[in-house]
Design a protein around this nucleic acid. Sequence first.
DNA 1: AATGAATGAGCTTTCATTCAT
DNA 2: AATGAATGAAAGCTCATTCAT
Lengths: 204, 204, 204, 204
Amino acid sequence: MNIHSVAPKRPDLDRLLIDSALALFAERTYEGTQMPAVAQHAGVGVGSIYRYFPSKEALGNAAFRYAKRTLLDTLAEALADGGPAGTAREEFARFWRGFTRYASAHPDAFVFLEHQQHDTFLDPESRALADELHRVAADFIERGQHAGAIRDGDAEQLVGLALGAFTGLVKLARPAGGLDALPAEDLDRAEAAVWDLLHRKADR
Amino acid sequence: MNIHSVAPKRPDLDRLLIDSALALFAERTYEGTQMPAVAQHAGVGVGSIYRYFPSKEALGNAAFRYAKRTLLDTLAEALADGGPAGTAREEFARFWRGFTRYASAHPDAFVFLEHQQHDTFLDPESRALADELHRVAADFIERGQHAGAIRDGDAEQLVGLALGAFTGLVKLARPAGGLDALPAEDLDRAEAAVWDLLHRKADR
Amino acid sequence: MNIHSVAPKRPDLDRLLIDSALALFAERTYEGTQMPAVAQHAGVGVGSIYRYFPSKEALGNAAFRYAKRTLLDTLAEALADGGPAGTAREEFARFWRGFTRYASAHPDAFVFLEHQQHDTFLDPESRALADELHRVAADFIERGQHAGAIRDGDAEQLVGLALGAFTGLVKLARPAGGLDALPAEDLDRAEAAVWDLLHRKADR
Amino acid sequence: MNIHSVAPKRPDLDRLLIDSALALFAERTYEGTQMPAVAQHAGVGVGSIYRYFPSKEALGNAAFRYAKRTLLDTLAEALADGGPAGTAREEFARFWRGFTRYASAHPDAFVFLEHQQHDTFLDPESRALADELHRVAADFIERGQHAGAIRDGDAEQLVGLALGAFTGLVKLARPAGGLDALPAEDLDRAEAAVWDLLHRKADR
DNA sequence: AATGAATGAGCTTTCATTCAT
DNA sequence: AATGAATGAAAGCTCATTCAT
């Protein structure tokens, strides 16, 4: 029962196009994806893309930024969920939940973001966003190190290791249906394993 | 009348071309790399590439297979080094040394191999090779689990996590000069962290 | 309940569209002018153009014919003004006044008509109109030659020269505000000059 | 008997392309000419154009500049021919010869140059060249006025009238085979007519 | 009747591949 | 054997035209 008597024919075509682009970029790379393929995936004509994005490059950047922002938002929400986090382990659990939620909801987007070949088309604004995730994660690592809960070492490197591990899991699970298709038990075990990657061992 | 009259003017031009291709593929993707760019990087004319490889696709597959085989060889060598491995921890150390050596010697190749977007051009033979590494690693994981040294869980998933972690480190180190530029201490710490990712905790 | 309920909201929208088309065609060529640009210039939606003209080509032909007919009408009026012309010089003055009036009132249209690149879109009916002006002018030349007032030579060529000269003046004056912006004195001098182009010199 | 044993397969392809472009631009406008048409006219593949010119716009500017420079050169040569010019009438004859020679040799180029719709694609360098011809001609007019041989009035306007007249003649002659197809007598008469357009009448 | 978002044929441009030198 | 100019199929993009609102 919609109040609006005149619903737009295609609501949010820009979002639809970004989703299509992400799906294809994840599968075949930005460079390997043709505009007609994006149009077909979205069920629109090629020309329509250009009503929303002035060029393929613009579409690529919009998709990248949308994906990155959504990931950051999901993460921020997960981190805030449940009031102030107590221990580093608990905060890590929130990170894990955030990533898991995002990778489940947007597997294409997550895979696309973790491609490393963005140099060819990212504009300065996108580049600025690109590092934000690492900053947030590195901050968590450093606080954990001060609290004695996380092992010593360069925070950036620990982020690289942990994020890489998670990415490895997502890549593996993807062809089989994504993270959602994994038994909950497996996800828990993976979480424990990555925590051990970061965790400072009590003795010694 | 030159004694060397039959010697090829450019020995191993195929290798040179593969190296150039790997360097560019790692930087800009297979699809984002033009044949003239490969030729220029190798310092030869475009036409010459086609004397060695019948098509771009063939070059891509040759590069992929060369990189994968070299990684497997390096790994096999590292695993065999020092006679039969004793503990799982020691075998892990050999794995680590193998990966480290390879990623140091061929950073481009390693990054290229860890792209996941090979679906567009890999032929069946290359695809068959693609899983070999995971098989070798999963075998190690399974033996370690039987010996009680490695945590429970799907071996494939543990491989994904550990290999992903290592890849995350390489990606991070790459712009700054690669793994070689990292302090030895950092590498050791990373090794310990990834081992803890796999290691079964003694108590509890 | 409006008395004018049956009156068209926009009277003469076809004329408005033709004027817009002429303005843009003069500036950027028929081929270089996009339908949306015509719509915007006329302050209507693109779709509305197609209510009045079935295609761009039809609009182009309508604009051409309208401009040409208006020029011929203006000329006919100027030639008839003041009763039967006496001398060739006087008839020439009427021609001059006709052209001047038209080029002042419709500078875009005049410039458009004097483009020579109409071959791509003019239909047969338009083509037939195209030569009318030259016919009228050539007739005047021939009568003048019989009367001994205009120099010998091919009448068509003399028309080409005289009309070309006038066009050269309009093109020059156009960026500076058109013929209207020219001092009256300059226009008179130009008229005298073009007359001398046609005039048979008294002696010899 | 060519000294060079290895003649280039296609000498001066850039010139050939410019000539083709000029022929088509003259016929159908810059905007109305497609790159494949230029390629076909030149007897080469479309891709080859882009080896010589980075874009259609670049080709358009190159063609414009080439045509304009050649016209200016032809004119300069004609003006210098026969030592210092004596009277204004003689100098005018040289101008006439220069224009005539050029329009005969390059009718397409001349027509293209006299289109007025270059605003859409000319770059600043081309624009600078565009006025050169008028400068040279206006200088001649002013000197002639000082010498009492050319009628009073704005020099620019007189140039516009005279050049326009010549252009009118070329346009007329073009479909019938160009200036060359005109009887010499007609050309002489036209020259006399245009001179009378400029000439100051001796008595009043 | 008027609108402008949507369309896809067609245009500009790129690039894997060929081949005369 | 090596080259790189030449090619044309295919990619990115534009714009005349349609049609649901």
